[in-house]
Amino acid sequence: MQWTINGRVREAEIDFRTSLLDLLREHLDLIGTRKGCNQGACGACTVLVDGERINACLALAVQYQGRSITTVEGLAQDAELHPVQQAFVEHDGFQCGYCTPGQLCSALGMAGELRRGMPSAVTTDLTSDDIAPSHEELRERMSGNLCRCGAYNGITAAIASTLATEGRS
């Protein structure tokens, strides 16, 4: 079986039962993606598949053959952090760091959803395609990523700052 992971074609022979998370961690040695609850509740395993965020723990790797997968290892370019990673550093968006890879990938997937005008559970005007990334929207949209250290204020500040910079550029 074959996948494109962080721009590189990777191959592995795996049991159909293998989750995308276990493929990354156990077969390809990409241990940046974390295993938290392993049942889709904590978001620590969030990766991007063709730019969209998914929980890798509940995804069967066999289903994602041929797709383009981005993990936290694929965010920085050479020695330069991705802007969202830099923002997490500047805004204290983590403490122990366990949830951070998932938070980062989730933030990037969420930014894409906002750009595409996707509504969330707290969007007041469902018909609007231009949804402002308010504090409430960000909290709701990131609610699938838990942080047991409780670094949520830093996380939302980091993401808000990244989105604001993105909006200006």
């Binding site: 889709g40 509740a41 978001g43 969030t46 965020r53 998914i54 929980n55 989730s106 997937g109 969420m110 959803e113 996707m118 509504p119 969330s120 559970a121 969007t123 709701e140 949209r141 990131m142 609610s143 699938g144 990523n145």
Partner: peptide
């Protein structure tokens, strides 16, 4: 959009 909110403690509410 709100479907999973009844289990938000265990199910994320985001589009993930």
């Amino acid at each position: 959009l709100t479907g999973a909110s009844a289990r938000s403690a265990t199910w994320p509410r985001s589009a993930v």
